[in-house]
């Protein structure tokens, strides 16, 4: 029996689209939900904040889309393993908390040599992390090679209101375990 040409063509179109649909089912299936606001109670410990920080980095912050933790070789963005140790001495005059804060609020101020100036400010859209969420991220970063010390009450240059209003920056509260930061972080530094 001779199959009509239009039937053969229809079967080819169906088989081709069917094959591509099948390929689509073979790749990992992940439904990405829009980020939800993180509810933080004021009495969170530093360790609890670090857990929340890790969650934020995975979801709302999308940090781990670019950064890796514990990878070596030719990387596109800095690996974060042991960053807590490097953060204390990365930029002269900045302690770890101020350094992390600068990296998150003003990431192009200092760029790790060998990497592109590509990180966006995390307190602005499309991420729009709140000051408290950023403190949680800092708590997690401190835990990578060190101990989380920040609390939700910790003040740094960027959550004191001084950076936004242009008023003189108040002295950042010394983070427990961290060296006292300068009153105004030097421009042209900062990391991503």
């Amino acid at each position: 029996m001779r199959v009509p040409i239009m039937f053969r063509i229809g079967a080819l179109v169906l088989a081709t689209t069917g094959f591509y649909t099948y390929v689509g089912q073979m790749v990992p299936q992940k439904e990405v939900q829009p980020p939800k606001a993180t509810l933080l109670s004021g009495d969170l410990t530093s360790a609890e904040m670090a857990k929340v920080g890790r969650e934020i980095m995975d979801t709302k912050g999308l940090c781990l889309t670019c950064h890796t933790i514990g990878k070596t070789g030719a990387l596109r963005f800095p690996d974060l393993a042991g960053v807590a140790i490097r953060a204390k001495t990365r930029v002269a005059g900045l302690n770890d908390v101020e350094y992390f804060a600068q990296s998150l609020y003003e990431p192009t101020a200092f760029v790790v040599p060998g990497f592109p100036p590509a990180m966006p400010p995390m307190n602005k859209p499309p991420f729009s992390l709140t000051d408290q969420e950023i403190l949680c991220v800092i708590a997690y970063l401190q835990s990578l090679g060190g101990t989380s010390t920040v609390t939700l009450q910790t003040k740094h240059h960027y959550n004191s209101g001084a950076a936004a209003s242009g008023a003189p920056a108040p002295a950042a509260a010394p983070a427990p375990g961290g060296t006292p930061p300068p009153a105004t972080p030097p421009k042209g530094s900062g990391e991503q």
């Binding site: 689209t17 069917g18 591509y20 649909t21 390929v23 689509g24 089912q25 790749v27 990992p28 299936q29 992940k30 439904e31 990405v32 939900q33 829009p34 602005k124 859209p125 499309p126």
Partner: peptide, 24 residues
């Protein structure tokens, strides 16, 4: 992007499997 946020029930990004079905 970064200006008007999707607040609808469809704000999530569907799986690639679902997307390929719609494309097909």
């Amino acid at each position: 992007y970064g200006i008007v946020r999707d607040q609808s029930v469809d704000a999530f990004t569907p799986t690639l499997g679902f997307a390929t079905k719609v494309v097909s």
